[in-house]
Simulated assay, not measured.
Amino acid sequence: MSKFFGYIFSPIFYIFFGLTLCIFHPIQWICFKFFGYKAHKVSVDVLNFFLTYCQIFLFNSISFKNDYNLPTDRPIIFAANHQSMYDIPSLIWYLRKHHAKFISKIELTRGIPSISINLRLGGGANINRKDNKQAISEIIKLGRRMQENNWSTVIFPEGTRAKDGQLKTFQFGGIATLLKAAPNALVVPVAIENSWKIVRFGMYPLTTGHALRWTVLKPIDPAGKTPNDITFEVETQIRKVLNQTIS
């Protein structure tokens, strides 16, 4: 039934999702051009509020749980599992006070309304996956911006989306590179559940009636720990929430 209703409601979802992206594209440009970073960030936050709650057109519920009083005067590395593109708007919206940035493929900085302009102007790292030197350089620059501004970065240590919801082994490179530039950053795991189900049949139909959940887990202070140890601890915490063991 979830797939059946997806045929009916996916077009409605895409219409509103696409309209939101198109409407906020010029709004972002105006905010940045005439009012600077702070105004641009507000426009991005509001954009992602609407993108997040477009899920109502698919009858999907949104739940974001955070039982921890996370600091705003210290950079944070949010390390999450990755299930679909719909993971990202909710992370931006609910982590907005932490100025969450992303490491993105440089190809995404062109041709996508709202998303491309935000990637170019928002302060994240846009990397060329075919140029390892450029990628590392951009991530280090992002780490320095985190350190200077007490921003946060969201990374997906799996390196790709888990399209079937099964967690892949986490890689420590991203955390290690960011910690070189922002050594006092707190590392915070985030478990994402059920967003893979939306796209289990691809772009169409999207499926309906899922409980989408984002859960902030116990923060990890990196002092005295190696990036490998930190990454393993992040993965272990997330696997526990997802009820998945290391294979």
Rank of each mutant, 00 (worst) to 15 (best):
A79V: 00
Y53K: 11
F102A: 00
G111K: 01
A80F: 13
I23L: 13
I27Y: 13
F64M: 14
I92H: 03
V154P: 02
W151H: 11
D164L: 08
R145L: 02
K101N: 07
P183A: 02
F24M: 03
I246R: 15
L186H: 00
L19C: 12
T52N: 05
F201D: 09
T109K: 14
K168W: 09
N126Q: 11
K240H: 14
I192N: 04
A135H: 08
I103W: 06
K240S: 11
I77K: 06
S10Q: 08
A181F: 06
I88A: 09
T109C: 14
N150V: 09
I56K: 14
I140H: 04
K33T: 12
K38Q: 03
K225D: 06
N228M: 14
P157D: 00
I92N: 02
L121V: 05
S43E: 04
L142I: 04
I30C: 08
E193W: 12
G111S: 02
K218G: 09
M203P: 15
P71E: 00
L108M: 13
P205E: 06
L242F: 09
W214P: 04
N150R: 14
K41D: 12
V234T: 00
R96C: 00
F170L: 06
E235K: 10
P11N: 08
L178Y: 05
A182M: 03
M85Q: 15
V190Y: 13
V241T: 07
L186V: 00
Q28Y: 04
Y37S: 03
G124A: 00
T177G: 03
S2F: 10
T153L: 09
I27K: 08
P113A: 01
F4K: 15
K163T: 09
A80W: 13
G173C: 05
R74P: 09
L91P: 11
N66V: 04
D73S: 07
F59T: 01
A223K: 12
N128G: 06
H99P: 14
T169M: 15
P183R: 07
F170D: 05
I76L: 05
G159L: 04
I127D: 01
